[in-house]
Design a protein around this nucleic acid. Structure first.
Length: 749
RNA sequence: GCCCGGGUGGCGAAAUUGGCGAGACGCAGGGGACUUAAAAUCCCCUGGGGGGCAACCUCCGUGCAGGUUCGAUUCCUGCCCCGGGCACCA
């Protein structure tokens, strides 16, 4: 953004003695203002008709939540994206680089409660402020395509997508144990719980039985896992995290006949080879069997007290009970499917209702948890797997490795590997089980009992039940007038006019759904809206989206490695199956940048270590801040902000500017053409003497140019900057040695 | 506990992924020039030890211990730290 040849007097913009502003004769303010003006005059960042572009590149920064002020850490994201976008532009691509706002969400609502300011006003104010900052930073976006997820023309289509999922049976309402944040007063998705605490506020999450809306992401578990192999240009780390989150495991489903009953008790295991070592069964407290026993009054008072205690502990904090294995014998007996041996069914605190069937076969000799439980309650332990070499089960701890089957009758001698197969086959022959794949991934809970989100487009009718809002009635507009109290109920309940509605089916009096959607629904499709941000007839222009997507380069923080990225992948696959898009993955290449820390900590208002960009830009210019941000370290790694480093970047630019002036002077200036974006330093070869030093410099220039381009392709922006520094050093060495090159040079971003 | 990363100068970091001398580039530090002085700017030095008046010479150095190789920051084995993710997932 700084071009040579501008005779602006030095010390432009000096504001008194306090400001060192433009020392060293580097008139950044004038240069930057002029560059900005020209970019906007040239509409440099706009792509025009999306269908016209031949060489396309879609470079996207994760759109931010408009929380207020940006700090230099946020800037890294945009500056990296800007560098990539500019490089691609210089390489002749039409680059789409849009910006928008993930504008629904809790902070706005909390601000409303706290400061009596409406979320929409608070949000708009923040957006205006952040836009100003982005502009000052010199980051180039196509602002004609700006979107905000809280705009009714945007969330209208979020609702539309909900309806499509509902049509397909992929959006459903169900009652079950859900995560509840007592502080945010809303339910949370499984993905939004970190170590038992709310990812937003850190409050310990409780469990509640509530009826909620879900997206059936589990229907795509296999596809989401398999297609990770298409994402070779994602960081391996992110792929691994997603794979672990989806958590596919292969094993067997086994049915145990319950004494005196028709319905068997089904369990899932990854180790059917240990079946002969199963000495008891264990179920979760919420298991249907337990529920029924209680209803029938078949559990004693002691058992009831035990369940109550566990439940209460879970309401307080479901993870606070990790320490010790506890359980209670239900008295129910099942038959071992192969031997017929009776096995007791226990209720155990370590069995989770949310995984598998909520019931397990316990093999104490080969599972540490079962071992601890069996030891505590005096349940028999039978060794059935012995390793080929080394120690196996030793009565002190379970042996969880593989080996050969023992104490398993006809199966003795099989390896674990073979055992899994032959035991499963035996079960299948008896109709007592079959092989089965299980996932850790659970359906995505999308309803929230909060105001500032897209209303779920559903109507509850006493006669027709759940009725989707007809497409023509979209959007279901979020009303302005509501009571902002964190009551645990949706604030929309307080607005009668919103609530009351005629049933679209029978015309009778009905009631609107008052929950809103998780903001991750908003952000799971926004990257497609940018192609046709004002389209009124569809969420996006199909042709344009299919032409431009997947996003070529997506840039954002690792904190979204699971949530946002998994949800977006899911929604894209659903839209693909609906015939709306032709691609299967939204983001071709992903880059997750590291955090910028200050005093070793993440920047936060509460820690008081936030580095705002404004004063720095004022003092040194945007180029300095941008250059330093790129130079601070490898972009994927965390880096510590250092004000001295900013000085260094400034010194470099000043030096560079001086060099350009010298060269321009030597060139007798007038040619006038300003070489806006040639992409790399180019030397006018014709004027080069074949003499030693000039030749040497020329060589060096070409070498470094090559290196800088390679570095940028590999995202080594820090070394690309160092390459530029070396380039300038070389030219200066040459100049001071008496050289007089004529050159046009240009900076990258 | 399991799964990923990563340990290089006072500091941030380079080394095009086994190759001619590790530490580019920058920060900090030291010395000098300019100045009445300061700021800014410019020049030189800066991993550690030892030697030489000197352009230099020499030894040791990429977390630790081994190994493969003509050659290892890079590959292999074991160990020690640091960061991150998942966490009673059967």
């Amino acid at each position: 953004m700084s071009e040579p040849r501008d005779a602006t007097p030095v010390n432009q913009g000096r504001a008194g003695e306090a400001e060192e502003g433009t020392r060293a004769g580097y008139p950044f303010r004038a240069l930057e203002e002029r560059a900005q003006r020209r970019w906007s005059d040239d509409r440099l960042f706009e792509i025009g008709d999306p269908m016209a572009a031949e060489k396309r590149f879609y470079c996207l920064n994760m759109f931010p939540y408009p929380s207020g002020d940006l700090h230099v850490g946020h800037g890294r994201n945009y500056i990296l994206g800007d560098a990539v976008a500019r490089l691609k532009r210089m390489q002749g691509y039409t680059v789409l680089s849009p910006m928008g706002w993930d504008a629904f969400g809790l902070p706005a609502e909390n601000a409303a409660i706290l400061n009596q300011i409406h979320p929409s006003i608070w949000t708009k104010r923040n957006i205006a402020r952040m836009k100003e900052q982005l502009h000052a930073w010199g980051v180039g976006f196509d602002w004609t395509r700006e979107i905000a997820s809280c705009d009714r023309e945007y969330y209208r289509w979020t609702q539309w997508i909900f309806l499509k999922l509902h049509e397909k049976g992929l959006a459903y309402r169900a009652k079950g144990a859900v995560n509840w944040c007592p502080s945010c007063q809303t339910v949370l998705a499984n993905e939004q719980v970190e170590g038992g605490a709310c990812e937003r506020c850190g409050t310990a999450v409780a469990m509640r039985d509530l009826e909620q809306w879900y997206f059936k992401i589990t229907a795509y578990a296999d596809a989401l896992l398999d297609d990770l192999s298409l994402l070779q240009q994602w960081p391996a780390k992110v792929r691994v995290m997603q794979a672990n989150w989806i958590g596919r495991s292969e094993g067997a489903s086994i049915r145990f006949v319950v004494a005196g009953e028709m319905a068997p008790l089904e369990v899932f295991t990854t180790r059917p080879d240990t079946l002969l070592g199963a000495t008891f069964l264990a179920v979760a407290t919420e298991h249907p069997l337990v529920t029924r026993l209680r209803e029938e009054g078949k559990l004693g008072a002691e058992a009831e007290a035990f369940i109550d205690r566990l439940k209460r502990a879970r309401i307080e904090n479901r993870f606070a009970i990790e320490a010790e294995k506890e359980g209670f014998d239900t008295g129910v007996t099942v038959a071992h499917p192969l031997t017929g041996t009776p096995l007791r069914v226990w209720i155990a605190n370590y069995v989770l209702m949310g995984y598998g069937t909520g019931a397990i076969m316990a093999v104490p000799a080969h599972d540490q948890r079962d071992f601890e439980f069996a030891t505590k309650y005096g349940i028999p332990i039978v060794e059935v797997i012995r390793p080929e070499t080394g120690p196996g089960y030793d009565r002190k701890a379970a042996y969880e490795g593989e080996g050969r089957m023992v104490n398993s009758g006809a199966f003795d001698g099989f390896s674990s590997e073979e055992g899994k197969r032959v035991v499963t086959d035996a079960l299948k022959a008896k109709g007592a089980g079959e092989s089965r794949v299980n996932f850790r991934l659970r359906d995505w809970l999308i309803s929230r009992q909060r105001y500032w989100g897209a209303p779920i487009p559903i109507i509850h009718c006493a006669t027709c039940g759940i009725v989707p809002v007809p497409e023509k009635d979209l959007p279901v507009v979020l009303p302005d007038q509501v009571a902002f109290k964190p009551t645990g109920e949706s604030p929309l309940l307080s607005n009668e006019a919103f609530l009351k509605v005629d049933c679209p089916k029978c015309g009778g009096a009905a009631r609107r759904e008052t929950d809103t959607m998780d903001t991750f629904v908003d952000s799971s499709w926004y990257f497609m809206r940018f192609l046709s941000p004002r389209l009124e007839t569809a969420p996006f222009d199909k042709d344009a989206v299919n032409r431009w997507l997947p996003v070529n380069q997506y840039i954002g923080g690792v904190e979204h490695a699971i949530l946002h990225l998994l949800y977006s992948r899911f929604i894209v696959k659903v839209l693909r199956d609906l015939g709306l898009v032709t691609f299967s993955e939204p983001f071709e290449r992903l880059f997750t940048q590291g955090m910028i820390t200050k005093d070793g900590n993440k920047m936060s208002k509460s820690k008081g270590n936030v580095v705002p960009p404004d004063a720095l830009i004022q003092r040194y210019g945007a180029d300095t801040v941008r250059l330093y941000t790129l130079f601070i370290g490898p972009p994927e790694k965390d880096a510590e902000w250092n004000d001295r480093g900013v000085e260094g970047a400034y010194r470099f630019l000043a030096r560079y500017w001086k060099m350009v002036e010298d060269v321009a002077g030597a060139q007798s200036v007038k040619g006038g053409r300003e070489a806006p974006s040639a992409g790399s330093a180019a030397v006018d070869a014709t004027s080069w003497a074949a003499s030693g030093p000039a030749r040497e410099l020329r060589r060096r220039v070409h070498q470094l140019t090559q290196q800088i381009c390679d570095d940028m392709d590999r995202f080594h922006l820090n070394t690309a900057v160092s390459g530029l520094m070396q380039l300038v050093n070389s030219v200066q060495d040459f100049q001071s040695a008496g050289g007089d090159p004529r050159m046009n040079e240009v900076r990258e971003a």
